[in-house]
Every structure is written in C-alpha cells, then in structure tokens.
C-alpha cells in the first residue's frame, strides 16, 4: 500500500517544528510513525506534509523529580518497558508498554505519538488516565499542561489543536502502599487491546484506602470507573470484595460501546467485569 503524496520536513528543534507546523497548514507530526504511517497507507488521512520530529533528542528520556515522573514524548515503548525507574515508580505504565504490539513495534512507537493518536484500543492512555497523568503541550500561544482526563475527547480526538506539539507526559510517582497493574485482552493479530484495564490500589492493614481504575477499548475514550472505585474505597481487598467491585463497571460504561467483527459491543460489556477483576487482583497483590 502506498500513502498519498506528501511533503517532508525534518525539524531540528521543538521551536522549528512549531514554525513548520504553522507554515504548513494541515501538516502532521511524524515521530516513530507507528500510528501515523498505517493511517496514511490506509488513506484515512492525506496531510499535505509531514514534519519529522523523530530525531529531537530534547524530547527523549525519563526523568524522576521528587514525587513525579517526566517522560519525553519521543520515549519509545521499549524504553518505557525496560526502565527501572518506571518499573519502580509507575509499574502499570511499564507493564502496559511491554505488551504493546510486538518488540519491533515497541522499538519504534513513542509515548507521545501513541497518546496524540488517541486510538481507543491503545494501552498507554488507559494507564495514564488511571494514574492521573498530564500532558505538556507547546503551542503557538506558549506552553500549557492538560490533564489526561480532559485530553482524550473522542475516538482519535484530543485537546491538541493546530500548531500544537505534545512534548512530555508527567505523572505522579507511586505512593507507598500502592499496587498497580495493567491487564489486557489483546487482539490476536494486531495486539491492540480489545479490553485493557489499569488499576492502582492503595492498601493499608488489608483495607483499600484509595482506588483508581480505568478501562480502555470499550468506549471511544479511556474511561475512569468511579462505581468500581467507590465500591473499593474503605473496603477489604479480599477476592469476593474485588469481584463485587469489578461487577460495578457496567454502571460506568454508558451506551456508546465499541463493537466490531472481532468482539461485539454486547460481548465487551459482558466480559468487562472479568478483566476489571483480574486487574484489581493483580494490583492488590502488588500493593
């Protein structure tokens, strides 16, 4: 398959990338290309130009600063998965990165590209919503930070506007006593998440003192599950309590469930609680 014709510009700095975006209306940013190139090849988009930011070293790397982590937008999934800092301070994100696609995809795909693409079947957005991450964005009007819960606005739709460049993902480091987990039901060929669940449970003396749970693959955006979280808070982390809380996810899904030839909306709704329970059990065990 061949993509439509497009012009090509290689940016040598974030500032230059911003200028190129503004002087090439409709242009798209190219990082690893693992979301964008398939879209171009399938001719779902035909931008007049690509602006290659893939070589900008300033957008790479993982930094731990006190209680928070800052992940450069060009950090690859393989780098996230292998990072000892991430495994320690945000293990659910490292786990999710390790099950994206396959090793070759993880070598090229980046966290910034993944998030900006906002595929509902993606893995990282679900974890970032659960962990309360935020996205740093450089735009024409300066820099701003958008919380993950406000960033994802619909299927492949985000808070990024024309001329915006996502530069980094920031998230809080895991507090003491918190266990995290990400589990997914992967499509057997594409490895995308049919269902993905991220959970972070803080446990003290056998009781859950705080819970954050998000699901992906089910509706057009990664979704927090407040009914599940509410059922967990203050209760025991015994198996039956976790299962009962997981069953509450149906109340959080609404009516806009995704269905396709592989997994119908009815099927996804029915099986969601199973995967939520597995995520809760894994998070409780890790706490």
């Amino acid at each position: 398959m061949f993509a439509p014709q497009f012009g090509y510009h290689r940016a040598s700095s974030v500032a230059e990338a911003g200028e190129l975006l503004r002087s090439n209306p409709g242009a798209k940013l190219l990082a690893g290309g693992h979301s964008l190139i398939p879209v171009l090849k399938l001719r779902l988009a035909a931008p007049p130009a690509l602006i290659d930011i893939g070589r900008l070293a300033e957008l790479r790397g993982i930094a731990v600063d006190g209680g928070s982590l800052r992940l450069g937008a060009l950090t690859t999934h393989a780098e996230l998965a292998a990072s000892p800092e991430l495994q320690r301070h945000a293990p659910a994100l490292a786990q999710a990165a390790s099950v994206i696609g396959d090793p070759a995809v993880r070598n090229r795909g980046t966290i910034g590209g993944n998030v900006a693409h906002a595929d509902p079947a993606s893995d990282l957005p679900t974890v970032l919503v659960a962990l309360g991450a935020a996205f740093e964005i450089a735009g024409a009007g300066g820099e701003r930070t958008v919380p993950a819960a406000e960033f994802f606005q619909g299927m492949m739709a985000t808070a990024l506007g024309d001329g915006d460049l996502l530069t980094a993902v920031v998230l809080p480091a895991r507090p003491p006593g918190q266990g995290q987990a990400y589990v997914k039901f992967a499509h057997p060929a594409s490895r995308y998440a049919v269902i993905g669940v991220a959970a972070a449970l803080t446990v003290s003396d056998g009781a859950c003192t705080a819970a954050a749970v998000a699901v992906g693959g089910l509706v057009p955006v990664p979704l927090r599950a407040p009914s599940v979280e509410g059922a967990l808070a203050g209760g025991p982390v015994a198996a039956d309590a976790l299962a009962a809380a997981a069953d509450r996810v149906a109340a959080d899904l609404g009516d806009d469930l995704i269905g396709d030839v592989f997994a119908s909306a009815e099927y996804r709704r029915a099986v969601a609680a199973v995967w939520v329970r597995r995520a809760l059990e894994a998070a409780a065990q890790a706490a």
């Binding site: 693992h34 090849k41 393989a78 070598n107 060929a189």
Partner: peptide, 23 residues
C-alpha cells in the same frame, strides 16, 4: 503490509523495525 505479520522485519541500527511501517 499492516505491521502485523513481521515478514518485513529488518535491523535498523541493530534493532528490529517492521520496514513496511517505516519511511
């Protein structure tokens, strides 16, 4: 041709890449 089957995999600077999904 959709980065699923892996038959186009090569090494780029020593690491695998699916060359159907790389310009």
């Amino acid at each position: 041709d959709t980065s699923q089957c892996g038959s186009c995999t090569v090494l780029l600077d020593g690491m695998t890449v699916k060359s159907c999904t790389c310009l």
